[in-house]
Amino acid sequence: MGLLTGKRVLVTGGSRGLGRAICKAVATEGARAVAFTSLHGGGVESTQDIEAAGAEARAYQVSTTDAAATAQLVALLEKEWGGIDVLVNNAGVSQTLPLALIDEADFDHVMSVNVKGVFLTSKAVLRGMMRRKSGVILNIGSLLGLRAIDAPVHYAASKAAVHGLTLAMAKEVARHNIRVLCLAPGLLEDGMGKNVPEHRLKDFLEHCALGRAGTFEEVARFAAFLVSDRSAYTTGETILMDGGL
């Protein structure tokens, strides 16, 4: 028996990187079905990972900032699966830019994907969760939203917003037996972590107790635990996973 036996999971931004690792982890933990979205399509590898673990896999090309498309996808899964037990809001974007070069459009784009997308997808999924009085939402935050670190300010702001959203949403939907959590990774060795300038990476490693960047798999395994019933008494928290910074 895995941690998530029989669960129906939706992961946004699940075609690659941390999202793909989360899809694989939840399937490995026994999820019955895993659907994931990606902005640009693809996700063959994720599908293979999920199916290899014995779960039903579904891939959808949907922007999380498109409220209608997101609602349509959720309605489809609700109808065909009978409900969604777990949502992982993983989709996000960043730009490595100093403040001086972040223009209004950049700011709006990052906030739209990283904050509005989380809100819209969560709201769509919560409707069914509230009706069933059950569910878990895991948001992917960031160390950069919690510490004074050299980081793109719009990205840091968006992740801090996700932490706040997690708190308020957790409080509001707790009455419906729904948990909302945020997992905030530190520096990871792949994905957005690849864009970290060399001197900042060096600085990070110097101050990190474990002396290394984390991996997608480590974060994904912990994510699977957080959305499982094993962590049933945890909600509203932003859990930092940064190797001891």
Partner: peptide, 10 residues
């Protein structure tokens, strides 16, 4: 507030 949730959810 409860009613809003319930109406919206169902």
């Amino acid at each position: 507030r409860e009613a809003i949730d319930d109406l919206w959810a169902d």
